[in-house]
Design a protein around this nucleic acid. Sequence first.
RNA 1: GGCGGGAUAGCUCAGUCGGUAGAGCAGAGGCCUGAAAAGCCUUGUGUCCCCAGUUCAAGUCUGGGUCCUGCCA
Length: 312
Amino acid sequence: MIPIITIQGATASGKSRLAIELAEWLNTEIISVDSRQVYRYMDIGTAKPSKEEQNLIKHHLIDIINPNERYNAGLFIKEAHLVIEDIHKQGKIPILCGGTGLYIKSLKEGIFSIPDIPESIRIKLNTELLEKDLESLYHRLQNIDPRSAERIKPQDKQRILRALEVWEATGQRMSEHWEMQHKENQFQSFDLIIECDRSVLYERINSRLDIMVNQGLLEEIKSLFNMGYTKESFGLNTVGYKEFIPFLENQETYENCMGLAKQHSRNYAKRQITWYRNCNFNVALNQSLINISEVKSLLKIWLEEVMRYEYF
RNA sequence: GGCGGGAUAGCUCAGUCGGUAGAGCAGAGGCCUGAAAAGCCUUGUGUCCCCAGUUCAAGUCUGGGUCCUGCCA
């Protein structure tokens, strides 16, 4: 099994800095696990590592699609596998760093594999939703795939549509895909999480938004519009971007938009924290007390184990 | 100054025919298998601005007061 190191944690908890420091020490490369840093031209609001940092350490899966394109967990794991193997072949241990929990989970445990859903099926389901209502789609799901329906709430449009499109595209129920999927760890991972007191994290989030605006976040959003992207572009559906659009359109005050941007970032961090509560980590670091030499010595122990496993 | 509109949960507001009140957002907690910075669930006792009156009963009707706010001057 290929060894990897993951660095996870809520937004603004200081993952990138730690990742760069460890990457320098291990002479390795970083793979971004972030559903928004994949977008080109969205640098400030997604808190991408700076050009200098990227020159220092090679970062992967950053700036790979345009803001009108969609990304998802399936694409991520496909591309991440390629990069991981490539780095592994160079004798290095890749560091995966980012806050998109689902991507890491999917990468480590796998997801059921199906071909791309034809756009026609999505259109058909959405038309059906407009003509009828969510309730009737949910009833249909209950008939087709009762086991999936049981796990999905009748109000959860996104997941109801997903389960139906899987059925329509593959002719197999989502619950069957789950069953066929063999769930086993694909990598030998050292998982590290950065934790942060809630009040401290919220302050960091708030002040980071102020800093982003000082760095030119609003100009960055304007330039996206100048390039022809609109508020409907998938990339613009990002916390720290979408909230400022009403201000740029003179529909809202700056203060209100900023308030919402901060609020939504805090809400997002809260959801991340809840998610991580169900994940296992080798090390949990407190953001304010990170002792880098302690981290390194723990990693050293793990590395020795990995090497033994690899060579004997 | 004249004529309106308003005052109800931290915020924005509903509240039908008078029967002591409820949504969204926030906050708190939780869920999560291809949109995940997404989507979803649980959680709502507050001098219904104040005073007086009518009434068995007033957020709701009447009178007065206070404070916001729009238009016209």
